[in-house]
């Protein structure tokens, strides 16, 4: 109810991966906690880490131990609602699906949270264009490790 008032999924409704998994390598985080008729993420995952069940209205569940962090589901999801996160020491990374004009690799950007509020500065580390993602880009941002659960967007500042 709170989420439909605000228009986004608040932290308490999101299943975040445990710390030791986040430290190993990238892992997918789905922010899709509302029953909608949709399931292409399930078919997209090459290792079967995402399940929804028979009823396509159910909410996706990601098996964090099985997820390899390949990023394929991010660019397939029509809701652009799957992200990836990773952290090592003080550094953190967030990969997000993106369909606006892209920034440049290496560019410094403002980091935005789920409401578009600035929460810090970061760097565009990598932009991936995969054929199977049909023009949806995967953008990996580097930031302070404690921001990886907050950052879901960015703004070019130049």
């Amino acid at each position: 109810m709170k989420c439909t008032k605000l228009g986004y999924f608040t932290d308490d409704t999101i299943d975040f991966p445990p710390l030791e998994r986040l430290e190993k390598r990238f892992v997918a985080v789905a922010e899709c906690g509302q029953e909608i008729p949709c399931n292409p993420c399930v078919d997209a995952c090459p290792v079967g880490a995402i399940t929804i069940g028979e009823n396509i209205n159910h909410i996706p569940h990601i098996d964090f131990q099985r997820c390899t962090g390949c990023g394929i589901c991010l660019g397939v999801c029509p809701g652009l609602s799957i992200f990836m996160a990773h952290r090592k020491g003080d550094t953190g990374w967030v990969t997000l699906p993106y369909e606006l004009f892209p920034p440049d690799e290496g560019e410094e950007v403002d980091l935005l949270d789920r409401q578009g509020k600035k929460v810090g500065r970061g760097v565009v580390e990598k932009i991936r264009r995969l054929k199977q993602h049909d023009r949806t880009l995967l953008i990996t941002l580097r930031m302070a490790a404690d921001l990886i659960h907050a950052v879901r967007g960015f703004r070019r500042s130049g």
């Binding site: 605000l6 986004y8 609602s81 967007g153």
Partner: peptide, 12 residues
């Protein structure tokens, strides 16, 4: 769908 509105909100 909240996934749609979330996309818009995070653009500010």
């Amino acid at each position: 769908y909240l996934v749609h509105s979330a996309k818009l909100l995070r653009l500010g």
